[in-house]
Design a protein around this nucleic acid. Structure first.
Length: 666
DNA sequence: TCAATCCGTATC
DNA sequence: ATACGGATTGAC
């Protein structure tokens, strides 16, 4: 009774078995299941095909990992019901990548596959098939199109970076080089990246470039069009809509296009003969996937580089502690400019503490502008240049800091951030819940704490009144400006939304720095510096940058000296002392109290593990943090996935959210 | 002694 | 989720 039609279904003669990952969201089903391939579906069901199978009585989607001769499954096998789409969606390379990412983040293969493979769109597939048959299905041969004619070629723009040559040489020779690039202020980074892509294409290898948002995507898209000409690359993002997104994705999958630029999901793009992976501004939290298993794009690309041998370029004005870790370990080398070159490119940066001198102008006082900032802005505007004003978004979580030096107050026990809960005078730790009555500042010895009322936020109107007659433009969450022209204007922007000014800004005011720095997040310093550098990079070399924060703070020092590498090294050292990623590996487990407790007791943690918490969160859930030495990180993910599998197998009702190396820890 | 029902476990 | 097998219960 292999089918209701009796002898009508026969297995394929060659490789009759298909190993299928079924698309069911249960951790204990995260392994292949063997199915029979009928003679009828023999051609349609290939390694990588999306299929529909009967599983536990119902029809579900699945992915074919491979075809095989026999099965170790003792009992009778079911037939695959049908194939979905003509083109296999997995390649051997992406299949391996999905598995590796799932393992790294204690998640399931199909969860990651869902992130990386867009939903099928039948009409889009039909249109691509028609196009391919018209073109005679001949994929383009990019390296024959006269790349060698441009001998000086791509390297020109990279001349200011001493070690760039060896990286470009490696990419041009299709070797798996890895580098962390600190872009100079004012750098036309999108064009530099397009040049690396061209070098890769000349070596006959494709490329994947990942940017945080739509605006950066448009920039790289334009730079690639300029450098490579039309039709050589595709832009992939969720904003495209299902049909266009699938059409472009298929163009990549079929090899018609070998260069992809996109936002985080494009990190899995199935580029044929992949040679280069690039991530721009890897510290941006948009690179973190908000859906399970919450992978970070830098990690995805690093894994992909290791597995596939593609070169990797981690690029940005700023540098993360994670990137620094890759440099320190020797896994990646750094591409930086000499101090001399930097000095010519960087604007003049000065700090003004927030206890600024009294300003006489009432409008400026209302806008709470430091007098130095006011002067710099007025001078720039008089010279006919635009001025960038960066103001943080309102609504940061209130926290505690040292009453004297304002450094964030941390738990002496676990390094978690301290906070006062309503009704209690004594500060407690947000992570482990322990009271910290005997706190003293590790920096200055002060014993008193102060509440930090962060997120004050200034309005554009307030600032505008200080500059009568000057046009005020705003760029923020609701409406992001891409560019502004070079005329005198006040451009008020939240971090990440700063428009590019043609010719560069005459000045930039980075306001409320202390508010950004005293957020209760352990990444506050790194994140603040990243935002400052990204804004200051838009200022012309003759311009000025005023940051309203105390010059003695290390992050402020790093900005003034334009030293992202030094700051990242310091940050990494500090993370090591606080036992915080990437120096250790952490997992955050959130859910109901009983569910979390159950998962913790089911997990066979390594000997050297440390449990922090549980602490109650805002709603009815609790959180436990698990910390292990870095070397045991993969083991931590394995035991957590196993424990989650045990729970799902016995139909535990309440889910636990497992996040590895969570970025925001407040 | 056998059938109906319950519970646990695997799902190919 | 659903399906199946083994255990358990209840009626003859």
């Amino acid at each position: 009774m292999s089918s209701s039609r009796g002898a009508a279904t026969e297995a394929a003669v060659q490789l009759p078995i298909a190993r299928v990952m079924v698309d069911v969201a249960l951790a204990h089903l995260d392994r292949p299941f063997d199915y029979l391939v009928s003679a009828e579906l023999d051609a349609a069901v290939q390694a990588g095909s999306r299929v529909r199978v009967r599983f536990a009585g119902r029809l579900v989607d699945g992915y074919v990992l491979e075809r095989g001769v026999d099965s170790t499954h003792g009992a009778k096998l079911a037939f695959i019901q049908r194939a979905i789409g003509a083109t296999p969606v997995l390649t051997p390379e992406t299949g391996e990548l999905f598995r590796a990412v799932a393992d790294r983040y204690a998640g399931s293969f199909v969860d990651v596959a869902r992130l990386g493979i867009p939903p099928r769109h039948a009409a889009a597939e039909a249109s691509v098939a028609k196009l391919a048959s018209h073109l005679g299905a001949a994929p383009s041969t990019p390296d024959s199109s006269g790349g060698s004619a441009r001998l000086a070629g791509p390297a020109i723009g990279w001349g200011r970076y001493r070690t760039a040559g060896s990286f470009l040489g490696a990419v041009g020779a299709a070797r798996a080089a890895r580098a962390v690039w600190s872009a100079l202020p004012g750098e036309d980074w999108a064009s530099r990246l397009a040049e690396v892509v061209e070098t890769s294409l000349e070596a006959g290898r494709g490329a994947v470039l990942i940017v945080p948002d739509a605006r950066d995507l448009a920039r790289v898209d334009a730079a690639l069009s300029t450098r490579l000409g039309p039709g050589r690359h595709v832009a992939l993002s969720a904003e495209l809509g299902p049909a266009e997104r699938y059409r472009r994705w298929l163009a990549v999958r079929t090899g018609a296009c070998r260069v992809v630029v996109g936002t985080r999901a494009a990190a899995y793009a199935p580029v044929t003969e992949l040679g280069l992976l690039v991530i721009w501004d890897d510290g941006d939290d948009l690179h973190r996937e908000p859906r399970a298993p919450y992978p970070d794009t830098r990690d995805v690309l690093a894994l992909r580089s290791s597995l596939s041998g593609a070169a990797l370029l981690i690029a940005g004005y700023a540098r993360t502690a994670e990137a620094q870790q890759l440099v320190d370990s020797g896994w990646a080398h750094e591409i930086v400019a000499d101090r001399e070159v930097l000095r010519r490119a960087a604007p003049h940066i000065v700090a003004t503490g927030d206890d600024f001198e009294q300003v006489r102008d009432p409008a400026a006082r209302a806008a709470r502008l430091p007098s130095l900032a006011l002067r710099a802005a007025r001078e720039a505007i008089q010279a006919g240049a635009p001025v960038l004003v960066q103001v943080p978004r309102r609504g940061y979580i209130p926290s505690l800091a040292c009453a004297r030096d304002r450094s964030p107050a941390r738990c002496p026990n676990c390094s978690g951030p301290l906070a006062t809960t309503s009704g209690h005078a004594i500060a407690t730790c947000r992570w482990c819940g322990r009271p910290a009555g005997d706190w003293s500042c590790p920096v200055c010895g002060e014993r008193r704490l102060r509440a930090v009322a962060v997120g004050s936020g200034r309005t554009a109107e307030e600032l505008g009144r200080a500059f009568p007659g000057v046009p005020v433009r705003t760029s923020g969450r609701e409406q992001v400006l891409d560019v502004v022209d070079s005329s005198a204007a006040l451009v008020v922007s939240t971090p990440g939304a700063e428009p590019i000014a043609s010719g560069g800004y005459g000045a930039a005011l980075l306001l409320d720095g202390w508010a950004m720095l005293s957020r209760p997040d352990l990444r506050a310093a790194e994140e603040t510096l990243r935002r400052w550098l990204n804004a200051a990079a838009l200022v012309r070399p003759t311009g000025r940058v005023i940051v309203s924060a105390d010059a003695s703070i290390p992050a402020v020092q790093a900005l003034i000296r334009w030293d992202p590498a030094g700051s990242a090294a310091r940050e990494l050292l500090e993370r090591g002392e606080l036992r915080f990623p990437p120096s250790v590996r952490m997992a955050s487990l959130t859910g109901t109290s009983s569910a979390v407790a159950e998962l913790v007791s089911a997990a066979d943690f390594p000997d050297q593990h440390e449990l922090i918490g549980p602490v109650p969160l805002a709603d009815t859930t609790v959180r436990v943090l698990v910390r292990v030495p870095r070397a045991l990180g993969s083991g931590l993910a394995v035991v957590l996935h196993a424990a989650a599998a045990a729970r799902s197998a016995r139909k535990a009702p309440e889910a636990v959210k497992v996040v590895l190396d969570p970025t925001e820890l407040i």
